[in-house]
Design a protein around this nucleic acid. Sequence first.
DNA 1: CAGCATCCTGCGTGATACTG
DNA 2: CAGTATCACGCAGGATGCTG
Lengths: 125, 125
Amino acid sequence: MAKAKTAPICGCPVAAFQKMISGKYKLRIVWDLQDGPRRYGEIRSGLLRGSIGSAEIAPRVLSRELKALTEQGLIDRRDFGEVPPRVEYRLTRKGRSFVPVIAAIRDWGSRHLAPSNAVEMEAAE
Amino acid sequence: MAKAKTAPICGCPVAAFQKMISGKYKLRIVWDLQDGPRRYGEIRSGLLRGSIGSAEIAPRVLSRELKALTEQGLIDRRDFGEVPPRVEYRLTRKGRSFVPVIAAIRDWGSRHLAPSNAVEMEAAE
DNA sequence: CAGCATCCTGCGTGATACTG
DNA sequence: CAGTATCACGCAGGATGCTG
């Protein structure tokens, strides 16, 4: 075993999943990209729109997450290589296949924890 | 925007979701609990079994995650209040409704980012 | 415009010891 | 058995400045 630290997660896809989406914006980036390719700035703006509004996104952070997503094969980076710089990100096949999962998350989230606090009408039987 | 109720946190269920499952074991705890109530030690063992193996789970961490899940209404803590201590955790209704989401994650994960080993049917019970 | 370089901080997580 | 208390550390993530 080379790196028993992080690589052979454990046969638990959930752990790998958690690692993959570690980062505040990864899920939202993939989600936003489902409508088509987007440029760096567009992604950033989109992220800001949904955010609390007060928080700016550090380029360093966004950059890192985009790179991670690229390396994980979820998105594809396309550099037009000209000035002014123009870079587009788009979902790969893998990334597209992941969208439904996010949809499920969103769906569940919007009905169970979208409001501030969850009012569990749960009776605990 | 369908219905922007109050946009308490950020109007993005995904962010709330990420926050909710922040923690290494939360998802797996919920997943393990779907088979029925489990005691503290059982949860711990179950977590260890699937883990890298070298890492022990700090009680402090597990304790905190269980408490968080309880406060979030995903699981329910049942203290038998006797010695020797016996505490059981079980899924609430909300928690049970979350299982399919984890299933979707597991499903996707097992076919897209399962490294190469043990992608077996832990679910197939 | 799309990043990278650097510093700094909070907190999630691990390890160990103790208790009811 | 089921936790709590304490110490320590790594790293995600924010802020700022610079560049091709």
